[in-house]
Amino acid sequence: MEFAKEIIGQYGYFAIYGLLALGVIGMPIPDEVLMTFVGYLASISVLDYSVSIAVCFGGAFTGGLLSYTIGRKAGRPLFHKYGKWIGVNAKRFNRVETWFLKYGSWSVILGYFIPGVRNLMCCFSGMSRMAMSRYVLVSGIGAFVWCVVFISIGFYVGVLT
C-alpha cells in the first residue's frame, strides 16, 4: 500500500483513475483496498469525497469497457485456441455462455464485488456479444455502487478514528 500512497501523493486523482482502470482490466492491484484508502484520505481532507467517487467510477468504468472490448474482439478466438490448457472445452464454454445470456446483467453488477470475477464478467460480456448499450448500463450501475460502497467504508472508518 506504500506504493499506492506514494503514487497518489505524487499524481493525485490521475493515479487513482489509472490504478483502478488497470485493476479492473486484470492487473494485480487491490482495488477494494485502494478505494478504501481513498475514502480514508477523503475523511482527513486530503482528497474530496465526491471527486474521489467520480474519479474511481471513471477508472473502474474505463477498465470495464476496455475488458469488454478485449473480450469482444479477441476473447472467443483465444478461448477456442487456448481453452483446453485451462480446462475449457467447447461444451463448457457453450454452457457458461447460455447461463450468462440468462443472468449476465446481474452477473456484471454483482461481479464488481468479487475480486477476479469482476475481470472475467467484463471480458465475458464482450465474448458473449452482450449489447454495448446494455453492458454500459449494467457496468455503470455495478461500478458506481462498488465505488460508493468502498470509498464510503474508508471514509467512515477515517471519521471514526
Rank of each mutant, 00 (worst) to 15 (best):
I86N: 10
C147F: 01
L160G: 15
W106K: 14
V33T: 14
Y13V: 00
S105W: 13
N89S: 08
R72F: 00
L22H: 07
L66F: 09
T98S: 15
T62K: 03
P77Y: 01
R92M: 06
R76I: 12
I44L: 09
T98N: 15
F79S: 12
A42P: 10
H80G: 12
G158L: 07
D31R: 00
M127P: 12
Y82C: 05
G58E: 01
K81E: 08
A60K: 03
G104F: 03
G111L: 03
L120C: 07
C122A: 14
G23C: 05
G158H: 13
R72W: 00
K84T: 07
G126N: 00
R118S: 00
W99Y: 15
V136S: 12
W106D: 04
W106G: 14
G26Y: 08
G87H: 03
I141W: 03
P115M: 00
F3Q: 15
S133P: 13
G142Q: 05
V46P: 06
N89D: 14
I25H: 04
I151S: 11
V108G: 03
F57A: 11
G142M: 10
I114L: 14
R129P: 09
V51W: 04
F100E: 10
T98L: 11
V117M: 09
P28E: 06
I8W: 07
G116Q: 09
F124Y: 09
V51F: 06
T62L: 10
L160D: 07
T98M: 12
I7S: 02
F57S: 08
I86F: 07
R76V: 10
I153K: 10
G154A: 06
M121Y: 08
G154P: 07
T62I: 04
A15W: 02
Q10I: 00
L47S: 08
Y156H: 12
G87V: 02
L19E: 09
M35K: 11
F93W: 11
T98H: 14
V117H: 06
Y11M: 02
H80I: 09
G59E: 04
S43P: 10
F3A: 15
G64M: 12
L20V: 01
W106H: 12
V138D: 09
Y135K: 01
R92N: 08
G39N: 03
A131P: 12
S139T: 08
A42F: 04
M1F: 02
M127F: 01
P115Y: 10
I25K: 04
L20P: 08
S43I: 01
C123H: 10
G104L: 03
S152H: 07
F150P: 10
G23E: 13
L137C: 11
